[in-house]
Simulated scan of single mutants.
Amino acid sequence: MSTRRSAFILVASVAATVVASTTISMLGATTGSTAPAAEPAELERPSDVQIAVQPEQLSVVGLPCFPGNLNLTMTNTGSEARYADLTLDPSGPLQLSRRLFSSWLPAVDPDQPVSAPVEVRVPRDTQPGSYAIDLEVDKTELTVPVTVNPLPPKGPGDNLALGEQAAASSTHGNFFLCGAVDGDKDPEHWDTLTGWNDGTRAAFPDTYDVALFQPATISRVELYTLDSAKYPAKSVGLRDWDVQVRNGRTWTTVAQVRGNTVGHVTSTFAPAQADAVRILCLDGNDHTYSRIVELEVFAS
């Protein structure tokens, strides 16, 4: 057989094989024969991070010193330590002190929760109603309902200092700056973080201020200092102080108290225009700290 004829037979054989393979493939497509099925997608594993929040629902009002407080908790229930990011998505006008809680979560037995606080505020002109904060970690979601309540009245006879912005020369780490304008004047609640305590032991003077929402003509200030069964005012209460008002940039003394040994003192004075009120603390009965349970301001 010649070389040319052998090459022709080889090419024809290869071509026949290709045609046959193509035909079988096409027949498979038309008769329902299929290639092996793809592996099923891996199912998404549930998160090993549990989230919790206290309280489970919240009420707030549009005053600077009336924030709502949440405590967020993440717990790793898995077998490996890891980082986790908990995101917070507020609705409407809600303002949060943080939008992200990110933490290293240990894998220990028993489970070790990790917590973080969040302050929730709303502007003064927020429409009362129902809002929400959506929490999410690893696509696990939790919703916190938030109710915005109407503003408290601030007319004649009402406490103008209630919930308004406070400022102080210092604040002890166990107390909140806003504790003396939170509406709680019960000295027995002193250990539950109501009231204000300065942060400079045996160093005077100290100042505690509250800015009024709008200028007002005032003539009376009520001061509640610490005076409980456990902590009597004659031992630990505020002893000496000046009541001052600010109108613009200048502070003016309108009343003075010296040698006080009781828990509640009323200071009245000639009507004065004010946009802020200050208690200038000069001494305490134990000569260590300035302690104010509640400060109230009233118009003429």
Rank of each mutant, 00 (worst) to 15 (best):
P145C: 03
Q127H: 07
E119A: 14
E136M: 07
N174V: 11
F175Q: 12
G155M: 06
A161K: 13
V120A: 05
P156G: 07
D138L: 14
E119V: 02
K139W: 06
L177N: 08
G129T: 04
S170W: 15
V148N: 02
F176Y: 11
A166C: 07
L162V: 14
A166E: 03
G157V: 08
V122L: 02
G179K: 05
P153L: 10
Q165W: 07
H172K: 14
G157P: 04
V122Q: 01
T147F: 04
F176W: 15
A166F: 04
V120F: 00
P156Y: 07
T126F: 03
C178M: 11
G179Q: 05
A180V: 10
L162M: 10
G173K: 15
A168Y: 09
N174I: 08
T171K: 08
P128S: 07
A166K: 02
F176N: 12
V146I: 02
P145A: 02
E141C: 09
P128H: 01
K154R: 14
G155L: 10
A168E: 11
A180F: 15
P156L: 13
E119Y: 11
V122T: 06
Q127E: 14
K154E: 08
V181S: 05
S130N: 11
L142H: 09
R124C: 02
A168C: 09
P156V: 12
P152D: 00
S169L: 05
